[in-house]
Amino acid sequence: MPHRKNFLLNRLEPTILAQIEPHLTTVEIRHQEVLAETHQRIEKVYFPHSGIISCVVELVGGGAIETGMIGNDGEFGASQALDDKVSLNHVVMQVTGKASVISSDRIRVAANELPAFRGLLVKYEQFFVSQVQQTAACNAVHSIQARTCKWLLRMHELAGPDLELTQEFLAQMMGVRRTSVTEVAGDLQKSGMMTYRRGRIHIVDLEQVRAWGCECDSDIRSHYRRIFQSNESAR
């Protein structure tokens, strides 16, 4: 069943997923496709199978910074849909992938009728808030090099060792100047951690990237395990 490629949907009992499945469709979402604009009403909820969804805070001066990544371990739009609210961020597909999609109206009905499903969505919202809080602390305290490595670790976890993105995009997601990213990327290449050619990053030495990164990646993983009472192999 393709919908079980999403970790949250895969955790549902077969009888519960069977009640939701008729209302799910599978779609491919392309790189840079916008899923929601800031203050836009949420019409669809996405459960990724692959790829990465990025939540970005846009600033009045034209800058932007990423506050959270969503992959096949989560969903986007459920908490807003349950309360009939709008998106607080600009939400864009960072890495092309597929997802199970359900309308906001239908997910509200399903969550009210299926307490186990609603409980799962609430747990993920708790995790996502913890990820945003960790990211805020990381952006305030840690060096650009450590943050870049943490960012690459999360990307690798969700999308694998080959990432198609530009330094301009990476700089925007981290809220720093492109020159800073260029310098850090050069250091990582010289140390043999990754290669970067024409907008494509290939992670060569994951353990070294982890050693250069801050503790935030492992802390985020720990939050996830504690909330879902799972281990890495279950993911």
Rank of each mutant, 00 (worst) to 15 (best):
I220G: 01
A211Y: 00
E207F: 00
H223L: 11
R198W: 13
G186S: 06
R226G: 15
D217I: 04
T179I: 04
Y196H: 04
D187S: 11
T179P: 09
R226T: 12
I201K: 05
R221Y: 07
I227V: 14
V184M: 14
K190D: 02
H223C: 09
T179V: 01
M193E: 06
D205K: 13
S191I: 01
D217C: 07
C216F: 02
D187I: 03
T195H: 05
A185S: 04
Q208D: 05
R197I: 04
S230T: 15
H223N: 08
Q208L: 15
T179F: 01
A234T: 12
N231R: 14
Y224A: 02
A211M: 07
S233V: 00
D187G: 11
E207R: 09
D205F: 02
I220M: 01
A185Q: 01
G192T: 04
A234K: 06
N231L: 09
W212E: 15
D205P: 00
R226E: 11
T195E: 10
E215N: 12
R200K: 13
R210M: 07
F228A: 04
F228G: 05
M194T: 05
I220L: 01
W212H: 11
E215M: 09
W212P: 01
T195C: 04
K190C: 01
I203A: 00
A234F: 11
Q208C: 14
W212C: 10
A234M: 11
L206G: 00
R198F: 11
Y224D: 07
G199S: 10
S222I: 14
S180M: 04
K190H: 09
L188N: 08
R221A: 08
W212V: 06
Q208N: 11
A234Y: 15
C214M: 13
M194G: 07
V181Y: 10
F228Q: 07
T195F: 02
E215A: 13
Q208H: 12
F228W: 07
W212S: 15
H223S: 08
D205Q: 14
G192E: 02
H223T: 12
N231G: 10
T179Y: 01
R221I: 07
R221S: 05
G199R: 04
R197K: 08
E207S: 07
C214E: 15
F228K: 10
S191G: 02
H223Q: 14
G186E: 02
N231M: 13
R225F: 12
S233F: 09
A234N: 08
Q189V: 11
N231F: 12
E207A: 05
T182L: 03
C216N: 04
R221D: 15
A185E: 03
S191N: 04
L206S: 02
E207K: 12
R198H: 13
I201M: 09
M194N: 09
R225N: 11
S230M: 15
M193L: 13
D205A: 14
S191Q: 07
E207V: 14
M194V: 03
V184T: 08
A234W: 10
W212F: 11
N231A: 10
S230N: 10
S222A: 12
E215W: 14
R200I: 05
S233H: 09
E215Q: 14
I227K: 13
S180T: 00
V204N: 00
A234L: 12
V184I: 08
L188M: 13
D217V: 08
V204K: 05
S191E: 04
K190N: 02
E215H: 15
I201S: 03
S222D: 14
A185I: 02
G186F: 06
K190W: 03
C214F: 08
R225Y: 12
S180I: 00
Q208T: 09
Y224H: 06
